[in-house]
Amino acid sequence: MTAIGEKTVSNKSESTAEVVGVSPKRGIERRGQIITGLCVTLVVVLVVTLIFMVCSRGLATFTKDGIPLGSFFGGTTWNPHQNGADGVPLVGALPMIVGSFSVTLLSCLIALPFALGASIFVVEIAPGFGSKIFRPLTEVLVGIPSVVFGLVGLGIIVPWMRGLVGGTGYGILSASIVLAFMILPTITSLSTDALAAVPNSYRDGSYGLGCTRWQTIVGVVLPSALPGILTAIIMGMSRAFGEALAVQMVIGNAAQMPQGLFTPASTLTSVLTMGMGNEAMGTLPNDVLWALAMVLLIMSLVFILIVHLIGRKGAAKND
């Protein structure tokens, strides 16, 4: 029906000799614009409502329930169902914040040397092996579900830790090792891309001055790839920071201030996954979990922001 209608319109305009038979095309243009525009709107609305929802629920802890910011971010005891000596519920999130940051930094520290070494090898030393075998392999590793890493950690790393240092074997170090395995492919794959993007003319320049391969790598290739490598590290950190399941399986889930690398601890994510199903909506214990989620969300936004800042600096540098 519409087609016929449009045809009539176009015939009319033909007779007035102004627009010649373009109406059907114009219709497609407009429909395309509307459909893709709707998709964009949907994505934007989703992101905005998600951030709004997490923040409004999270902020309710401080506004509705009247928890002082200090006792949330500075308190070291987590037991939302009880009140402390001062009558304020025990909702100190510091143990989880410290736990999250320690496993994130530690896992990056463990993974980075291996990731960087591997990417230098496959870009600078054995490019054929790199592109044919190694890169597809790391891509497969990126896709392995985190629960698999958790299981491996539970079956191998926790008993191994127990044998090595005693105690339960659960703890920050076990979690960091599992996370290091998990983010290793992410960091490797991104830093490989960063090294591969270094123009060959830089290498020619360095070799032409009589520099060896290592001098070239250290003197020119790594400095040029630095923004990309930093991005790789931040992406790895953001994945480690947000990982819940694998960490929860091996960290021991004791909501207490971490005493060392080998004692059970907990992270923002592990407390969230353990607690969310058990608390009634709108109660204080539920609200503080939303506050934890808000901290997580803000941190991931910060990570993304850092990546963008690095990207902009790197782009400016290479112009």
Partner: peptide, 28 residues
């Protein structure tokens, strides 16, 4: 290659400071 230097078709300064570009060879 130290004794037979090379200049390329497309200028290829390193993404380092002007000083470090010149100091690159002597340093290595």
């Amino acid at each position: 290659r130290r004794r037979v230097g090379m200049v390329f078709q497309k200028p290829n300064p390193f993404p380092l400071s002007i000083y470090d570009n010149v100091a690159y060879g002597p340093r290595h």
